[in-house]
Computed example of a mutant assay.
Amino acid sequence: MIKYKSLHHVSLSVTDLERAKAFYGKILCLKEIERPDFDFPGAWYEIEGKQLHLIVHPSSQTIRKDKSLSSREGHFALRVENYHETRNWLRKNEIEILEKPNSKSGFAQIFCADPDGNLIELNVDQKEL
């Protein structure tokens, strides 16, 4: 049996590091942290004690070709403080979103994608709407 302490990090493939850093740093407002000096480019971000690792890999097999938003595609989710402020920020920055405020999950969800099509869910408990 495996006993877990927590989720440590999520890694995503990206094709253009500067474009990805602009999205994750400026649009999603994540804090970039120091990254080891690997022999390939990338960036690391800290999210409430957990990490998101971006890895530049132009021939990745995990980058979606169809960039349409679907909540059923593989994604990672971040809990946000305020649904409406998050939605308004994304709209102000002209980020395409898919809203599911009444999801059966119990979360009010906003889906968006990074420039490579990696899906991100931003959510709050529906009771907080």
Rank of each mutant, 00 (worst) to 15 (best):
S6F: 08
H9P: 11
V10E: 04
V10H: 01
S11N: 05
S11W: 00
V14K: 10
V14Q: 11
V14T: 15
L17Y: 06
L17T: 09
L17G: 08
E18S: 12
E18D: 14
R19V: 14
A20F: 02
K21S: 09
F23I: 10
G25D: 02
K26H: 12
K26T: 05
K26L: 13
K26Q: 12
L28V: 03
C29S: 07
C29Y: 00
C29D: 05
L30F: 14
L30C: 05
K31T: 06
E32D: 02
I33K: 01
R35E: 03
D37K: 14
F38R: 06
F40D: 10
G42A: 04
G42E: 04
A43M: 05
W44K: 04
Y45A: 03
E46K: 04
E46Q: 05
E46I: 02
I47K: 04
E48C: 13
E48D: 10
K50M: 02
Q51F: 13
L52I: 13
H53D: 03
H53V: 09
I55W: 01
H57S: 06
P58C: 14
S59E: 10
S59W: 02
T62Q: 01
I63M: 04
K65F: 00
D66Q: 00
K67D: 03
K67A: 08
L69G: 11
S70N: 13
R72Q: 02
R72S: 05
R72G: 11
E73W: 00
E73Q: 03
G74F: 01
H75W: 01
A77Q: 07
A77D: 09
A77V: 08
V80Y: 06
E81Y: 15
N82K: 15
N82W: 14
H84R: 15
E85N: 15
E85Y: 13
T86D: 12
N88H: 11
N88M: 07
N88R: 06
L90V: 12
N93P: 11
N93A: 10
I95T: 15
I95L: 14
E96W: 02
E96L: 15
I97G: 10
L98T: 05
E99Q: 15
E99P: 13
K100L: 15
S103W: 08
S105P: 13
A108L: 02
Q109V: 10
I110A: 11
I110K: 09
C112E: 09
C112S: 13
A113P: 06
D114S: 11
D116H: 11
D116G: 08
G117I: 02
N118S: 09
I120Q: 10
I120S: 06
I120C: 07
E121D: 09
L122D: 01
N123I: 10
Q126K: 12
K127S: 13
K127M: 09
E128N: 10
